[in-house]
Simulated assay, not measured.
Amino acid sequence: MSRTPSSPVGLHRVLEPAEASLPQAAQRLDATPELWPDEVRISIETLNLDAASFRQLSEKHAGDGAAVRAEVLDIVATRGKMQNPVTGSGGMLIGTVEEVGPESSLGLAVGDHVATLVSLSLTPLVITDDLAKWDGRSERVPAQGHAILFGRSIAAQLPDDLSPDLALMVMDVCGAPALVARVVGEYAARGISPTVCVLGGAGKSGSLSLAAAADAGAGRRIAVVPFGREADLLAGTGLADEVVIADARSPLGLSEAVAAAGGPADITVVCVDVPGCEQPAILSTAQGGTIIFFSMATNFAAAALGAEGAAADVRMLVGNGYVPGHAAYALDLIRGNAAVRGLFEGRLEH
């Protein structure tokens, strides 16, 4: 059977729409197991749904795990990938390399235990066990099946010194601390120790971002959390100088709370998985400051128009999930920072 030539970014796997479209924007992908020469097939062990996607599915089905599981199965069966049709996001996975095409340049070998560092929203995916071991109530999804990596996909071998589940949680958000460290480093190179405010500071990407900010030379670090129980998680960890309990969707409430904690921030990092935080983040950031949006719940049009409407001279960055060396950097933060590691291990126990 003749097939179209492979594309390093996966164009050859796009089934719908008929016109050329990148896999992330496609409605349906070819997830058949037969490889093109530059592809790699992964035998799946665990999927990790991104926080915004899981929250949307869980709220839609009022916490009914069976209904969430059924919808995830339907999405994958229909689209050939795990891409939430509302949030547009997916997650990532861990598994074992099953076959490597002869022209693959990813440096993987059969039997390697790996985490994919590209989104499930663009990864051809087949589930074969009906997610029988998943109750639909957590982001971490035990699963069997296969996934396909393209010529320009990214994967990392899981470290021997950390549990696979811990490594998966870290790698799922590893783009956030790497970019925060880069931006803080830009300020530090100019002799500025910036005030950094992290919305969602007790979460996975938020806590790693706080650790990265300290590592890169930040001055004051402000963590914003929505509830007292999350503030308690950060208390005594040293990850933040101030922990603020505030609604990140409230423009005046958030900006006033951040100001009282030593703001406005030179750098604001948005790591919450709920919509409506764009304007509050803008008002909490100093003129000439930087906002990094890592949440897939962000409305980027609202961010751009909100900054214009508030006459806010702020640089706004989209955290695209990839910075060279991001996985290794995040894993080193976990190894070297007992406080952030404790937060992650506590999530696993929970």
Rank of each mutant, 00 (worst) to 15 (best):
M1P: 11
V9Q: 09
L29S: 04
V40A: 05
Q56G: 10
G63S: 08
D64K: 01
R79E: 04
G80I: 03
G88I: 10
I94C: 04
G101I: 10
P102H: 01
S104Y: 05
S104R: 07
L106V: 10
S119I: 08
D130G: 13
W134L: 11
W134D: 11
S138I: 07
G145L: 14
H146Y: 07
L149N: 02
A167V: 08
M171F: 13
G175P: 12
A178G: 08
V183A: 05
L199D: 01
G200S: 09
A202K: 05
L210Y: 06
R220M: 07
I222Y: 04
V224D: 06
F227A: 15
A231V: 07
D232T: 13
G238F: 08
L252S: 12
E256R: 15
A259Y: 00
A259K: 01
P264M: 07
A265E: 01
D273I: 00
Q279T: 09
L283P: 00
S284A: 14
G288H: 07
I292E: 05
F293N: 09
A297P: 03
A301E: 13
A303T: 08
G309I: 09
V314N: 05
Y322R: 06
L331N: 15
L331R: 12
L333C: 06
R341M: 03
G346A: 07
L348M: 14
E349G: 00
H350C: 09
